[in-house]
Amino acid sequence: MPTIFPKASPSELQGLLVLINEHKGTEDVARLADDLDLEIDEILPSLDYAETLGLVKVSDGRATLTDTGRRMLSVSIRERKTILRDLLRKTTLFKTILRALESAPEGRLTEDDVQRLLAFTTAPSDSYVLNIINWGRYAELFRYDSDEHALIAIRSRSQGRSPPSSPPSAPGTPGARVAPAASGQVGDGSGSPKDLAYPANAVAT
């Protein structure tokens, strides 16, 4: 069986989750597409990968957010990346890449290595490879040197339980400073007029 790889960008995937959520967490796929004036095959790539990651369940042409999918929407942008990272780690695709990165000299994989590595996926064209790389970068699974076209392992992070945000190169970790506000921010009555806002996702809380 070919390894499934993302054909949509992280932004599109997230848009899909938001869209399903607007339909109270479950909706006919055709209706979802219709809502944004899209053809069905325009949302299928995101839907496929959302399903692969276990964020959405599709049965009988109906897409439903899973618990993970709901949780994803209820947290801050930064925490979403953490959830995504954990999900991606479980996929064959990223498992393979990360394993290769671990054993690679100096934790670097060149463009050629990546091409070879991904050769087992069903004929990924160049743009798909770049998309895969961008998923990895977004989820902070590895870094990427666009001049050398090389993947670089994020070394200092311990496997598994890792704090969100910056790769080792970024000085200072902003995550810690702002993080407290991230999930508790909603409706914490901090006095600012802005907290007239509602929780991001009432369903999840």
């Binding site: 942008i77 930064r78 961008n134 970068r137």
Partner: peptide, 29 residues
């Protein structure tokens, strides 16, 4: 300035792309 950069790269979910150039990014990013 450094603190501001880190903070806003972080809150917008751009960590991991600090050294990237715009052309490497999708429209959403």
């Amino acid at each position: 300035i450094a603190a501001q950069i880190d903070r806003y790269i972080s809150v917008t979910g751009l960590v991991g792309f600090e050294e990237a150039y715009p052309r490497e990014l999708s429209g959403g990013m």
